[in-house]
Nucleic acid binder design. Structure first.
Lengths: 214, 214
DNA sequence: GTTGAACTGGAACGAACGTACCACTCGGAT
DNA sequence: ATCCGAGTGGTACGTTCGTTCCAGTTCAAC
């Protein structure tokens, strides 16, 4: 772990000590926060350093370039988000009615549009930037594919007769609801509209929970 | 039209001659192109000037600040896109089967992901930036609301028993399919998956064209 | 033909940017 | 005790940025 020349990600960055790893992680966290509320356009090495409470020089030590930093921040985000999505869809399978399923998804979206708003905005910043950067596009594709596989398994267990298509529809509806409501402050009636849309989607796709399968 | 002090949008910009209007429009077009393929992060006054084939000084003459230019570019985009969407959904109503309707929407999305890709990317750049800029958010909201009204009318005419919810679902699915496939090159099998998802969505929502209503 | 406003385009400003550099400190291994 | 690479942080370079300025040109109105 401390052999010279060994590196976590770059050919010529030195090996990291525990303390070094903590600092590097803090930089990535700071970057995600800055991207979320200033955008990639407002992301500067100085802004990240200030957000992390570190000197500018530290960034150059842990990341070769700004682009490398952005890539690693995206990877961190997808890793973190994968757990959250998995948890959300695990809850989905415990519902008895279509309404229960819809409720889990509503809560998921609601969380993203309120407490985790910064993180959600950052996610879409990355997605759009993926259209221009092949390295980010690879992460996007892997992330999206992992999601689709998980959700199609869930759909299958919920009685879908075409799990692949249903997972594509569900993921699209979720993404669409998210971006369509990002520019608007989230009031209760909007949340209700989201819930209604999800209920109808789930119902019409014929997805049902445990009770129906017993 | 040539009274002194009169302005199309700013307090202290002079009135525009025809030639001036052409130049201003060219700047906005160039800006949309740059935003689409370099992103808002890569958008600079110099890049716009180069894209438009104009000197840098010209931009300062027609737009007070870069932010003003971005706002007007967004307004131009929504104005232009409104026509395209309207045309797409006008075609939808002429279909006899759910498959015909889905086919129109598939063609719409396909066009956005291929020939009009730059424009589509720019659109999502604007949407994300709307979360940070109230002036852009107003445009987003108005644009989204106009879409929803139009689509819900169409849904109603297609026999929907809940046009508002159905239009929300349809618009979300479309948006979701677009962003999910922006990072991936569009191959024929992807197009087929989009078509399948749209068919299933339309069918399950119980929407039917003219034939069913006769 | 003179006037004045619309328009042109090149040059220049200070500020902020990404990155590189380097003298320095620290801590574990020898 | 010493050594050496990981880690530190302040500084500085060259570039690009948004914006401003202004002497000059065009052209319709009088």
């Amino acid at each position: 772990m401390s052999r010279p020349g060994e590196s976590a990600q770059q050919r010529d960055t030195p090996a990291l000590t525990e303390r070094g790893g903590v600092r590097k992680a803090a930089i990535l966290e700071a970057a995600l926060r800055v991207i979320g509320d200033k955008g990639l356009a407002g992301l500067s090495m100085r802004a990240i350093a200030a957000e992390a409470g570190l000197p500018l020089g530290a960034l150059g030590y842990y990341f070769k370039t700004k682009d490398d930093l952005i890539l690693e921040a995206f990877e961190l985000h997808t890793r973190r988000e994968a757990d959250r999505v998995l948890a959300a869809f695990a809850g989905v399978e415990n519902g008895d009615h279509a309404d229960d399923i819809a409720e889990h998804l509503t809560a998921f979206i609601h969380h993203g549009l309120t407490e985790a708003r910064t993180s959600l905005v950052a996610e879409y910043e990355f997605l759009i930037e993926s259209t221009r950067r092949p390295d980010l596009a690879r992460v996007s594709r892997a992330w999206r594919q992992a999601l689709q596989i998980q959700v199609s398994h869930v759909a299958s267990r919920l009685g879908s007769d075409d799990p692949e298509t249903d997972s594509e529809i569900i993921l699209s509806v979720i993404a669409g609801l998210e971006i369509d409501h990002l520019a608007t402050p989230l009031d209760p009636s909007t949340t209700q509209a989201i819930r209604t849309a999800l209920r109808r989607t789930i119902t019409r796709l014929g997805l049902r929970g445990n009770a129906a399968r017993l």
